[in-house]
Amino acid sequence: MSGGPQLKDAAPQPVLAIEGAALHRDGSELWSRLDLELQPGEFVAVLGPSGSGKTTLLRSILGLQPLSAGSIRVAGTPVQRGDARIGYIPQQRPLPPETSLRARDLVALGVNGTRFGLPIPRRGDRARVDALLEGVGASHYGDRPVGLLSGGEQQRLRVGQALADRPALLLCDEPLSNLDLANQRGVTDIIDRERRENGTAVLFVTHDINPILDRVDRILYIAGGRFLLGTPEEVLQTHVLSRLYGTPVFVFRAGGRLVVVGVPDAETHHEHDGEEPITTSTITPGGHA
Rank of each mutant, 00 (worst) to 15 (best):
A69E: 14
A69I: 03
G70S: 02
I72F: 08
V74W: 04
A75I: 04
T77K: 15
V79D: 10
R81L: 14
R81F: 13
R81I: 08
D83E: 08
D83L: 07
A84Y: 01
G87W: 09
G87A: 11
G87I: 05
Y88N: 07
Y88P: 07
I89M: 12
P90W: 04
P94A: 15
P94G: 10
P96L: 02
S100W: 12
S100A: 15
L101Y: 09
A103R: 11
A103G: 09
R104E: 15
D105W: 01
D105S: 09
D105K: 01
D105Y: 04
D105Q: 14
A108T: 07
L109K: 00
G110R: 00
V111R: 00
G113I: 04
G113Q: 02
R115F: 04
F116I: 14
G117K: 01
G117C: 05
L118P: 05
P119C: 06
P121Q: 01
R122Y: 00
R123K: 12
G124C: 05
A127R: 13
A127V: 05
A127I: 03
R128C: 02
D130N: 12
G135D: 07
G135R: 15
V136S: 08
V136W: 08
H140E: 15
G142P: 05
G142K: 07
D143P: 12
D143R: 10
P145N: 08
L148K: 11
S150P: 08
G151D: 10
G151Y: 06
G152N: 09
G152F: 11
Q154D: 04
R156A: 11
L157R: 09
L157S: 06
